[in-house]
């Protein structure tokens, strides 16, 4: 009886753990459409803004394995798990700098997480490229792959 109880507890624990891990890597469902304090953009908006503003930062919130599949030219790799005010400050010194966050796509959640962290750290010109790399390649935009 005691063993059974122990087993059930293990199962519950394991599932809880898994759900927490899921939250950190990927969302079960699509990400929200907006992040308070940030501006959600599409690939075209990103390109339009980039054409007019030479100084901007595009943060690739994906882990390195994902980045190896290809990335938007000029983007800086800063996986969400490594993102905090300190790491952000190393890449983007000014808080009012134009910063774009993207990850794999609407379900990946990393850019969402990084955007929120950046907002907390005080960055105030945050653009969230919600469609991410999936939208980019689907729209036949060029990318870099090594």
């Amino acid at each position: 009886m005691a063993q059974l109880t122990k087993f059930i507890l293990h199962v519950i624990f394991a599932s809880l753990l898994l759900s927490v891990m899921n939250l950190s890597y990927a969302l079960d469902e699509e990400a929200p459409l907006q992040i308070p304090g940030a501006i959600t953009v599409s690939a075209e908006q990103l390109l339009d803004i980039a054409a007019k503003n030479p100084r901007l930062f595009i943060i690739d919130a994906r882990i390195n394995e994902d980045r190896l599949q290809g990335y938007i030219e000029g983007s800086i790799s800063l996986p969400d798990i490594k993102t905090n005010c300190a790491t952000l400050a190393k890449v983007i010194p000014k808080k009012n700098a134009m910063v774009f966050f993207y990850c794999n796509g609407v379900k990946c959640g990393r850019s969402l997480k990084s955007s929120r962290i950046a907002l907390k750290c005080g960055y105030n010109n945050i653009y969230w490229f919600r469609g991410g790399y999936a939208e980019w390649t689907a729209k036949n935009y060029p990318f870099i792959k090594h």
């Binding site: 690939a43 075209e44 390109l47 980039a50 030479p54 030219e73 000029g74 729209k139 870099i144």
Partner: peptide, 30 residues
């Protein structure tokens, strides 16, 4: 605008021979 950054491709004839052309933009984001 941004659409010009998209990669385009098509089948076409050149000197009555089929060819395949892919148009890739140069310049990253710009």
């Amino acid at each position: 605008g941004a659409q010009r950054m998209q990669i385009l491709q098509d089948l076409c004839l050149y000197a009555n021979q089929p060819i395949y052309a892919v148009l890739v933009p140069v310049g990253g984001l710009r």
